[in-house]
Design a protein around this nucleic acid. Structure first.
Lengths: 346, 346
DNA sequence: CTGAAAGCGCTTACAG
DNA sequence: CTGAAAGCGCTTACAG
């Protein structure tokens, strides 16, 4: 990494032009121009040296800078695309972006091993910024975005990266509320099927569960704590195992709605009724969950709103505003529907 | 509209520069530059005259032309965003686009009354083309896209616009298959809850239903034919009414999975079991439908594939290739799961 | 309010 | 393969 005046386009320093890079590379202006335009007549070593400098200096052609300024596009990337969860985030982000006159490119987190080119590619194509959802993002990537001057916001990150604004929900409180709901109905054997173990939000929900048991002075039972991956299949397997326990739980808190569907299906397969034989609480409140049979009791997480807030935060950063807070947690609340009921006197 | 050499950037003519417009307006170069950059020091009449010429000549700054050429973005627009249906289309389009090195902007169909600016805005921002999903599109809009040179493809359109490639599924055959499945199980009173009545695909599914009854020599009963809007709520109401009929149907074909969930919930509310008391077939096979309780029997529609094909078709058009066919219908097939069974001997 | 002149960032054609 | 020179499209500072 070459040391250079940290030209972020705002603080004093001259903006990076072809000449800047040419000087740094010790070559002439035309040579740098050729590299940028992919002309063949440049020696491989020269090309590579220049390419590296270009990236390090975060060079953006003036042409691009200008056209890009009026382009108004932001990127929204997921580690996987296809679930109702993603759909709701997309919904919120695109709506807030459209209101501000921005278009939203939707895609997957690029999987180049080091992700070296991602930030500079985005900066070169003049994106206003990037919102990264439920993905792991490395400190190195964060540094690249910062260097390239591309604002970055994360939603439900695996870990909250240092210095990056992150949007989430009150997961701990949500986990607490879900569990308290079951306890309040009179359940004493309450199981949890947690989400992906390394995800921050999953850990928070699990701690909420434990806090509720604790407050109710119920001894936690390791046999009732299972770790899923937020998906249906694995939760289905876990639920089968839980329901086959000699002393089976009467209430199950699943850390996502999809996992809750897995529990409901497992109950059906075992000939148990929901909520008569077993109560199920989910987490997310996807729009489909009120259409489940039975309509699912779940912790509402304002996904559309989270998308909106992420977008607004990003645009504020792009506009150079100071953020009030690096971490926003939007409120969750329990939506009691028909998948929970008091346990049968047993 | 001033007559001018139709400079589309390809056929011979010099490209339109600031100088072209300045000459036409009879002003100097700097004056045109000021108008473009919104500087205040231009007389209102001058400004307006220049602005008009700029539009007529379709002036695009060289800066923009260049950055746009390497931009590779296409647009994917929906009439509404949020359902699992949209998610699967997004999934297919973004995947195929990414493979071809394109980014996908996801958004809603703009609602400016005449949509006059839409096509030209897209062409000016250099989009490779637009995929329009489940929306009504007017002949006037189609003409505008053609004029602006922006390729257009539709998925499941309300009507197939003349001369526009459209992607769909074998909806008639799907409706036939779904109904035959119920008849094959021994059902004789089979109801349908159709989709939005004006949508092409809904009409095809309804005709498939009638064709199956016809082939089985079953007299259609108008009381068993209901028109929904593809959504849960209205289907729920219709299903309640159907189940309250003196001689209620033993099988119900819903023209979407969401509608099928409405039927399942209506049955639950009426204390009827699925499939023991009433069989339900959906249409779409959303990924969530195999996780429903009970897992839903439905007609699989390859939504992800449809998105892929739409994207490939669009990129072929953008590349100037001739299309094999203006209308592509991808195959549907029945997925028998647990929401259907023979009727009880009654 | 307008435009002649200078200048900026970049590209192109070509000599070496 | 490289770069000095010419040139292009556009913007800026300023005289009128």
């Amino acid at each position: 990494m070459v040391s250079r005046p940290a030209g972020d386009g705002k603080t004093g320093t001259r903006s990076v032009t072809l000449a800047t890079v040419a000087r740094a590379a010790g070559v002439s202006l035309p040579t740098v121009s050729k590299v940028i335009n992919g002309r063949p007549d440049v020696a491989p070593e020269t090309r590579e040296a220049i390419a590296r400098l270009l990236a390090e200096y975060g060079y953006v052609p003036r042409a691009v800078k200008r056209s890009v300024a009026r382009q108004r596009i932001l990127d929204l990337v997921f580690d996987s695309l296809g679930s109702a969860y993603s759909m709701e985030i997309i919904n919120g982000v695109t709506a807030a972006a459209a209101e501000a006159g921005y278009d939203t490119v939707v895609g997957l987190t690029p999987n180049d091993p080091h992700g070296v080119q991602w930030a500079s590619r985005l900066s070169q194509s003049g994106r206003a910024g990037v919102i990264v959802v439920t993905s792991a993002i490395t400190a190195e990537q964060v540094a690249q975005f910062r260097r390239a001057g591309v604002p970055l916001v994360v939603i439900d990150p695996v870990d909250v990266p240092e210095g990056v604004p992150s949007i989430g929900a009150t997961n701990w409180l949500g986990g607490l509320t879900a569990t308290e709901h079951l306890l309040g109905l009179g359940h004493r054997r309450v199981a949890i099927i947690g989400g992906r173990q390394n995800a921050l939000c999953a850990r928070a929900r699990l701690h909420g569960y434990h806090a509720a048991l604790d407050a109710a002075r119920i001894e936690p039972d390791a046999a009732l704590v299972r770790h899923g991956d937020f998906g249906f299949e694995l939760a289905f397997e876990h639920a089968l195992a839980l329901l086959d326990l000699p002393e089976r739980p009467t209430g199950i808190f699943a850390a996502s709605d999809f996992q809750a569907f897995g529990v409901v299906e497992a109950a059906r397969v075992r000939g148990l009724r929901v909520p008569e034989d077993v109560s199920v609480v989910g987490f997310d409140d996807l729009s489909i969950s009120r259409w489940a049979a039975p309509p699912l009791t779940t912790v509402h997480q304002p996904l559309v709103k989270m998308g909106r807030v992420a977008c607004q935060t990003l645009l504020a950063m792009a506009a150079g505003e100071r953020l009030e807070s690096q971490r926003v947690e939007l409120a969750t609340h329990l939506v009691a529907r028909e998948s929970t009921a008091p346990p049968r006197a047993g």
